[in-house]
Amino acid sequence: MNLSDPGTSDAARQELHPVVRIGIAAWALAEPPAVLVTTGLGSCVGVVLYDDALGVAAMAHVMLPTASLESAPRASKYADLAVPFLIQELVGRGAALTRLRAKFAGGAQMFKLPGKSDLMRIGPRNVEAVERALTASGIPIAAKDCGGSIGRTIAFHTVDRRLHVRTAKYGTYVL
């Protein structure tokens, strides 16, 4: 797979732009020149918050809209907890709340099952929950690529604050 410059070798690129990989329900924070990557988003949403001036960024691979059943939930798993949590972590690293922006992608409905089960609508519900949490925190949405029935792999480049979205069906595009 090739998420950035096709002319550079993987090893050289890794040295220039260390890649930080984030698993399902996990999160990470990175500073320039790192690249934050999460793979295979289906109904999950990959949320990135970043300081537009400094480039410091945090990404979460959100799985569910709201925390309900768990007694000690992992913030990065839930849209409603992940957004305030990422803000707190970024501000702790010197980011300014007023300079924070958001980019996110995912929230697809991979399977079309009849009926309106909550489980099958989880992608759109995840997207709504992310948007609600961002609005509540007053963070502007700089870009998003959500919905449909496609899987997505995303890479956020802290250097130019661009979000590369790779899909199996429609190739790669940059937000």
């Binding site: 399902i24 793979t39 295979g40 988003l41 289906g42 109904s43 999950c44 799985m63 697809a108 991979m110 399977f111 489980l119 099958m120 989880i122 496609i150 899987g151 997505r152 792999t153 199996a168 069906k169």
Partner: peptide, 10 residues
């Protein structure tokens, strides 16, 4: 038919 994790996550 898509990336494995995106097919499994639901």
């Amino acid at each position: 038919c898509d990336m494995a994790l995106s097919v499994l996550d639901v």
